[in-house]
């Protein structure tokens, strides 16, 4: 597979997962705001800033020159084109990547993605957002799930699909830690932390109830969303999927590694396999989430370095002898 194609599939997938997760973040926050007392409602806007922190967008938001024209935070996160990570920008970028690999994806995938892009660029999208923001978020979340289902059901589960999965699960792992982080960023002391809302926004209400019953605690919610081996949005589950996909791409048996990204993923996964809520409590959830996010970044950079960047550098400085070696190793990799 062309390196550029692998890169585009990976980012198409990441951006779609990201759009869905931003919708989840916005949804949680709106829910929390609904429960505020009347006195607290005066400072509604301040309840949105933690979300900017959680998504590392504070600087970009404050950099918007004209304060009077600066969109409100929820708008900035959903429809603003000035935010490269807004839902609308994510979908536009996913579509741009899809357009570059239009010959590699199914018509069904393209149709869904292109239709959503056209919708988000139309006045109807802004109208829906202002009339019923919750419905807007629900639709984005539903789209990202639908798109992933279509992907899994319409293209061969070969190398390209593994890059799609790598992007999807790395992004999901990252955003799950960010959603988990919100209650703490909203400051304790302003009432009970909204763990039930966090669970719903991760589609985890039913899973939680089955495992732990009705009462929602921070410890158990964290346990489910970080350490569950079977819940498909938990960090551990996502990392296992990344690990599987990377090994399927390189052909290296699980448990071993041939590239740096595999080593980093394996090591992060092992530390989750042998840890639990105690470790999180010891470190504090924000710090724990933070070190996980750093690991995810490193994994993403290494995937890029191995499969996208490196071949070009190799190609530029290649000598005849290196070329033979290269041809030899690429043959042996295929076997």
């Amino acid at each position: 597979m062309l390196s550029r194609v692998a890169d585009s599939l990976y980012w198409m997938s990441r951006y779609i997962e990201r759009a869905g997760n931003i919708a989840r973040l916005v949804e949680v926050n709106m829910e929390v705001l609904l429960d505020l007392s009347l006195e607290q409602q005066g400072s509604r806007e301040s309840y949105w800033y933690p979300l900017l922190d959680a998504t590392a967008l504070t600087e970009k938001y404050q950099a918007l020159e004209d304060e009077s024209k600066r969109p409100e935070v929820p708008e900035f996160l959903t429809l603003s084109l000035e935010n490269p990570d807004s839902i609308r920008s994510c979908i536009a970028q996913a579509r741009e990547n899809a357009r570059m690999v239009r010959d590699q994806i199914s018509d069904e995938m393209w149709l869904e993605l292109n239709s959503l892009h056209l919708f988000l660029s139309s006045p109807a999208a802004a109208a829906l957002w202002h009339r019923d923001p919750e419905d807007f978020c629900t639709q984005i979340i539903r789209f990202s799930l639908l798109f992933q289902g279509i992907t899994d059901a319409t293209i061969p589960h070969d190398e390209g699909w593994q890059f799609i999965r790598t992007g999807r699960f790395l992004e999901r792992a990252d955003k799950t830690t960010r959603i988990l982080d919100i209650p703490h960023r909203l400051q304790s002391g302003r009432g009970p932390l909204p763990w039930a809302t966090v669970l719903s926004s991760c589609s985890a209400r039913a899973a939680y109830r089955q495992l732990y019953g009705g009462e929602v605690t921070e410890r158990l919610a964290t346990n489910l969303l970080i350490f569950s081996d079977v819940f498909p949005r938990s960090v551990r589950f996502c990392l296992r999927m990344v690990d599987e996909a990377l090994h399927a791409i390189s052909g290296t048996p699980r448990g071993q590694y041939s590239i740096e990204a595999e080593r980093l993923t394996g090591s992060a996964l092992a530390s989750l396999d042998f840890a639990g809520p105690d470790e999180v409590e010891m470190m504090g959830l924000p710090a724990y989430a933070d070190q996980l996010q750093t690991k995810f970044n490193d994994i993403g950079q290494q995937v890029f370095a191995t499969y996208v960047l490196l071949p070009s550098e190799v190609a530029l400085q290649i000598t005849e002898q290196q070329r033979l070696v290269y041809a030899y190793t690429s043959q042996s990799q295929q076997q």
Partner: peptide, 29 residues
């Protein structure tokens, strides 16, 4: 490209070495 079942490449996907043209793939040239 899709109808013919062959790769669609951009200039940056190709590299010329010693009088041969290669495409850069995840498995090498």
């Amino acid at each position: 490209a899709r109808q013919m079942g062959i790769e669609l490449v951009e200039g940056r996907d190709l590299v010329a070495v010693d009088g041969h043209v290669y495409m850069r793939t995840t498995k090498g040239l």
